[in-house]
Every structure is written in C-alpha cells, then in structure tokens.
C-alpha cells in the first residue's frame, strides 16, 4: 500500500506590530505539516501553538460568516477560514489587508472603518419619526423583493472588496463596493423613506459611485459572491438619471 506523505507548507507572514516600539516590518517563514482538510485558520493556529505564540490574527466564527479573518493570501484578499491549504501551492504568503488600521501582523481594525462608512452613508432604515408607530404591523413585502434585499444583506463587511479595489488604494475617500452595496440594499427597501435625491447626496460624486473605475477587483474577490458589478452599474444608471434631471443644484 502506498502511503502518502503530507506536504510541508512554507508559510511566510508579514510581521509587524506598530504598537511595539522599534518593531520593523519583516517576512517570517514557518514550516508546518499539512493535514487533510486543513484551512489557513488551522494552519495559523498550528503556527501560533508550535512556532510563535506572539503571532496576531483575527478569527471568530471559522465559517465565513463573521468576516474577521480576511487577509491577503498569495496576493489576493480572501477569508482564511474558508481557504483550504490544498488549493494553494506549498509556499504561501500572508499579509494583512491594506487600507485598514493595522493592529499587528495579520490583524486589522476593519470595525472602525466600517462604522465610519455606515455613519457616512447612514446605512439604516430612514423613517418619518412622526409616522412611526410601534403598534402597527409591518407592511408585507413581496418574497422576490425580500430575497433581493437579503441577497445584498449577506455582506459581512470583511473588507476583501476594499483590499481588492485599485481605486481605493489611490483615493482613500472612495466609498468602495461595500458602501455602494449598502446603498443599493437600502434603496431597494420600501421601508426606507429616503428619496433618490437623498441617495444622490450620499454617493452622487467622485467619492461615490462616479469614482468607481470598474476595475472589478471587488466583484472577483468577494467571498460572499455578491453581485457587486451589477449593483454598482445599477446605481450608476440610477444616479445618472437624477444628476441629469434635477435642476435644483448649482451645478458646480
């Protein structure tokens, strides 16, 4: 009987802790034995357990739902918990996501960035407060529409689309696909009483939908496979009709 030997994986990690005085960014390589069904999550835990207890990385759910383990895997942003090592070559390079605040090693602070984005885009249902009544039943919604909203609501704010976007690397004020997807989601929702003009005010400029250069990095790296290209194109058409029609602004 032929006994298959497991691969030895060489995992190089960009190590740097900005909070440690004098620390300098460097690549460190760890060699571990691959196990059947191994994910990068398991591999990183193996490294922390057997090689270097100081390695920083984020995990919560291990099932591609929480979005905390996004990192750059061999140049591409992806979720470490959903990445099987057998689908990667024997030499793997890991780096933290760009754009976001670096906590240390592979750990980045996506939370405060996403919070800022949600506040900037007011990513919540807007209702007339005077009309709001807790005792009323919610209006029923067509199942197709509910599905469509749910499809976009699957975004886990992992930051992969931001890391995969060439535009945002150059122009940090660009809202990115995560932001545009949110607007597409609320714009679909009949409970949100904001007008198209309100949405235009949020994303109708070059930091918003008209800043998107259609590089499609977001579409191709999104671990949830969200229809980002299609939704951004939809918003672009929608915002164009408002920008062409409305004459109330000064035009500058």
């Amino acid at each position: 009987m032929k006994i298959e030997t497991n691969r030895r994986l060489k995992i190089s990690i960009l190590r740097f802790d900005p909070h440690v005085k004098g620390d300098k960014p460097r690549m460190e390589t760890y060699e571990i034995e691959e196990a059947p069904g191994m994910t990068l999550f398991i591999a990183l835990n193996d490294i922390r357990q057997h090689h270097d207890a100081s390695l920083k990385f984020d995990f919560v759910c291990r099932a591609g739902i929480c979005g905390s383990c996004a990192m750059i895997i061999n140049g591409k942003p992806d979720l470490a918990c959903r990445t099987l090592t057998k689908k990667l070559p024997g030499e793997i390079t890991l780096a933290p996501l760009p754009v976001f605040e670096l906590i240390g090693d592979l750990s980045v602070f996506t939370g405060n960035w996403m919070r800022g984005l949600n506040e900037r885009l007011e990513a919540w249902i807007h209702e007339e407060e005077s009309e709001f009544n807790f005792n009323l039943l919610e209006e029923p919604m067509e199942p197709e529409l509910a599905d469509e909203i749910y499809e976009l609501d699957r975004c886990i704010e992992c930051g992969c689309c931001v890391a995969g976007c060439g535009t945002i690397q150059m122009r940090e004020e660009f809202v990115g696909a995560v932001g545009l997807n949110k607007i597409a989601r609320y714009q679909l929702d009949p409970r949100d009483k904001r007008s198209d003009k309100d949405y235009y005010d949020l994303i109708g400029d070059e930091d918003g939908v008209f800043g998107c250069m259609t590089l499609l990095g977001c579409e191709d790296v999104c671990p949830k496979n969200l229809p980002l290209q299609s939704k951004i194109a939809y918003l672009r058409r929608k915002m164009l009709t408002i920008g062409m029609k409305d004459k109330s602004g000064c035009g500058c």
Binding site: W113, D205, E206, G243, G251, C252
Partner: peptide
Amino acid sequence: MRHDREHKSVAAYLCGYISHMP
C-alpha cells in the same frame, strides 16, 4: 479613509445641496 464629512469648506455651503457635474 476619511468618512467624516462634517467639516465642510465654505464652498460646500455656497454650492447648495447637490452637484450634478459628477
């Protein structure tokens, strides 16, 4: 990224609500 848009310059106030140019 700067999400903070509270600090508008005088131009932003003078220009009104939305710009159609983009």
